[in-house]
């Protein structure tokens, strides 16, 4: 028997440039906030805009996270995702409107309880309809992108129209619960209470999601499935079940985003999900399809950019997001943090 040949791998550290390239997406958000500060000049309006931009970004992230995971896991692109946003908003707001006693009372605990109840109802219902959607609409068209896009667009239309049938064709106006109205003043800037709540809430969801994906077994399977589904299946996991779970969870998150967005805008329409989908798609593309962290950063960028530009140059706000998307795709054609597929 001969001894094993000498094997001395040289472990060099990544060069500074490589590490910077890895960290660059994370740095973009602070850089954008700083650039916004320089461009705007006054601290108070900058603070207000930053908070509302972050709030908007968090809400978009909540809607986008499910979509990007569903794509990463099963290569399914769901154009009907926006329908769950609308559905969640209508269910949640109906619950809130049915509890005038809880929302009109100037008690934070009662108000939050009402909001949480509304969110729970919305999530359960959108989760269930997500399950049905997967069963009826998505399942027969696996592996065919073209048909997926067509069929899910059809599903979007049908759900939107059903919302019209159930809740009537008009938009619904609402007031936020008593203690969530108004603003607090901090360092001379008026910060709307609801926006702060939205930031906290969105951050909590992001952290919870990251915890589940990084620290639990199911998260490990999901991440492995995104990277190489065949290998996960050959190890004996039924990826289909995992996928259905992710689809349901993603739909429920879309519903949650819908409730949050409805409370933010104080008006809901059946077409709101469809309109939000445009921002959600931009976020998913610039983040890199399949990447939750990428979607988070992308959502914050979109939210901040929209608010800064709307303040600086209102006419440009409409195309600022397209501009952002173009710039990022020129820099990284696959999105900021593409999921490396082992295929």
């Amino acid at each position: 028997m001969t001894a094993a040949p000498d094997h001395a791998p040289t472990m060099t550290r990544l060069s500074a440039a490589d590490r910077l390239a890895k960290a660059a997406p994370f740095l973009l958000v602070p850089v954008l906030i700083l650039a916004g500060f320089l461009a705007i000049g006054t601290t108070s309006s900058w603070l207000t805009l930053t908070v509302s931009g972050l709030a908007m970004g968090m809400m978009i992230f909540v809607m986008a996270s499910g979509l990007t995971l569903v794509f990463g896991l099963m290569d399914v692109i769901n154009f009907g995702h926006g329908a769950f946003v609308s559905l969640g908003a209508f269910v949640g707001i109906s619950v809130l409107l049915a509890l005038p006693g809880w929302t009109a009372e100037p008690s934070l605990a009662l108000n939050l309880a009402a909001v949480l109840l509304a969110i729970a109802c919305a999530m359960v219902l959108t989760g269930l309809s997500g399950w049905a959607f997967e069963r009826v609409i998505v399942r027969p068209v696996y592996g065919a992108h073209l048909k997926q896009i067509l069929v899910t667009v059809g599903g979007l239309i049908v759900i939107e129209q059903l919302i019209h049938v159930i809740w009537g064709p008009d938009e619904i106006f609402l007031n936020r619960p008593e203690t969530l109205q108004g603003a607090v003043t901090f360092a001379g800037a008026a910060l709307e209470k609801y926006r702060i709540l939205a930031v906290v809430f969105g951050l909590a969801i992001f952290l919870a999601m990251r915890l589940i994906l990084r620290r639990t077994k199911i998260g490990l399977i999901v991440r492995a499935g995104v990277q190489n589904g065949q290998m996960v299946e050959s190890l004996g996991y039924r990826l289909r079940l995992v996928f259905i779970g992710v689809f349901v969870a993603g739909s429920a998150l879309a519903g949650l985003g819908g409730v949050m967005w409805g409370l933010y805008q104080e008006v809901i329409t059946a077409g709101m999900g469809e309109r939000m989908m445009i921002l959600v798609f931009i976020v998913v593309i610039i983040g890199g399809l399949g990447s939750v962290e990428g979607a988070f950063i992308g959502a914050l960028l979109v939210g901040l950019m929209q608010n800064y530009i709307a303040f600086l140059e209102p006419k440009l706000a409409l195309i600022s997001n397209i501009g952002l998307m173009t710039a990022i795709l020129m820099w990284r054609p696959q999105g900021m943090m593409p999921v490396v597929k082992a295929k």
């Binding site: 027969p140 068209v141 048909k147 067509l150 667009v153």
Partner: peptide, 16 residues
Amino acid sequence: NRWLMWLGILFILSVY
């Protein structure tokens, strides 16, 4: 006013 819904259903069925 709901005719779009029926078209949507028709659309899904015809794709299948």
